[in-house]
């Protein structure tokens, strides 16, 4: 399980310049990150290092990351719904 401090640090990394990214990243962090496999957690930390327009193109438009681990995570994030 990630520590409270790690979660707090990641929560701040989810603060972005666009509301859509704030909501998608925070929803995943708060509801799914703690129970995700270690590889997916690592992919999420890696995703947070990307620039906002890139994240927007992956999460809301038609582009997908070339990296297989990021690709799988992006697909999962795109399937989030308000009731997740």
């Amino acid at each position: 399980m990630p520590s409270e401090r790690e979660l707090a640090r990641l929560r701040w990394q989810c603060r972005r310049g666009m509301l859509e990214l704030d909501e998608i990243l925070l929803t995943y962090l708060e509801r799914h990150y703690a129970t995700a496999a270690a590889a997916e957690q690592a992919a999420f930390r890696c995703l947070l290092g990307e620039e906002d327009p890139q994240l927007q193109r992956w999460l809301l438009l038609d582009e997908r990351p070339a990296d297989a681990r990021l690709h799988a995570l992006v697909e999962r994030l795109r399937r989030l719904t308000p009731t997740d």
Binding site: W12, R15, R16, G17, M18, L19, E51, D52, P53
Partner: peptide, 12 residues
């Protein structure tokens, strides 16, 4: 800046 500079709302 409270967030990394290129994550400011100007990007929106």
């Amino acid at each position: 800046s409270k967030v990394f500079p290129t994550r400011s709302h100007t990007v929106a």
